[in-house]
């Protein structure tokens, strides 16, 4: 039995879609029997449609940016007008084989992401496996005989948690790493470096400029102020740093009896990496 854990899609607020490679991986009908959405994944029609195609057995828990109630289709509404709107619960429990799986979005766990707090929650819910989200970082560990899984964000959406990158990178290191990378970026940086020596922006007196790059270049040349030479693209800012160092990821749980094999899918540099962890209930 395969259970798919997705979390923190944040579509469309913070991200547009899953990586195409993820979508291709997941677009296999009748393989996955249940999907758990661990928060912040209910605002996109397309996304929900996509998830629905994977399996129509979906468990949703509420993330901080989800609303209290599930959106439902018009057909449902027509067929049963009296039915109250389905509430999105804070927690949910799934029983598979000999295992009970709890689901929760991380935002009601205080302190956030704290293993002991999560353990207390797992105890309260009486579950063997606890799926949680909210951090956008994929995680899996065993504590006190219980298995804790955070599938991260399936879109690699922007995250407001403390980012890791705020240590200022060492300049020497930056230079060497640039030399090592024969990428397109590198070329452009070389080029920009040249441009930077002749004419640069002057942020202090920056006015919005329209027109082609050439014009701007000329304009800049006439305004050279050497002491203020600075071009923003000297700074190496990757999308992942800006978003909070998270890569798109999701988890697939293969549950057989009291054993759960966890597959972690991570999207790094355009490639999908898969890790495997096995948990067995004592």
């Amino acid at each position: 039995m395969l259970l798919l854990a997705l979390s923190d899609a944040h579509i469309p607020d913070r991200a547009t879609d899953l990586p195409v490679k993820f979508k291709k991986l997941l677009s296999v009908p009748d393989k996955i029997s249940q999907v758990a959405l661990l928060g912040n994944s209910t605002k996109s029609y397309d996304f929900l449609k996509f998830v629905n195609q994977i399996s129509n057995n979906i468990t949703i828990v509420r993330g901080e940016f989800d609303n209290g109630h599930l959106p439902s289709t018009k057909k449902d509404k027509a067929s049963d007008n009296s039915r109250p709107m389905e509430e999105i619960p804070m927690n949910s429990i799934i029983r598979q084989g000999a295992l009970k799986i709890g689901c929760c979005s991380g935002y009601t766990v205080v302190p956030k992401n704290d293993p002991l707090s999560l353990l207390a929650l797992a105890r309260q819910l009486d579950v063997d496996i606890l799926l949680w989200g909210g951090t956008h970082n994929v995680e899996a560990y065993t504590l006190e005989g219980k298995f804790f899984v955070n599938p991260g964000s399936c879109t690699g959406a922007f995250n407001t948690d403390w980012p890791i990158v705020f240590d200022v990178e060492d300049s020497d290191e930056a230079v060497t790493s640039e030399v090592d990378k024969p990428t397109k970026e590198n070329q452009s940086e070389d080029d920009d470096a040249k441009g930077g020596s002749t004419g640069t922006e002057q942020p202090g007196s920056y006015t919005p400029k329209e027109g082609t790059a050439g014009e701007r270049e000329n304009e800049n040349e006439s305004n050279v102020k050497p002491e203020n030479q600075f071009k923003e693209d000297e700074v190496d800012m990757s999308d992942s740093d800006i978003n909070g160092s998270n890569s798109p990821s999701f988890c697939l749980l293969d549950i057989q009896g009291n054993t759960c094999t966890l597959y972690i899918y991570l999207y790094v540099n355009g490639e999908v990496k898969v890790d495997k962890v096995v948990y067995e209930k004592e």
Binding site: I93, V109, Q124
Partner: peptide, 9 residues
């Protein structure tokens, strides 16, 4: 079970 917000599940 009872959830973290007190709802019965």
């Amino acid at each position: 079970a009872i959830g973290s917000d007190g709802t019965y599940i």
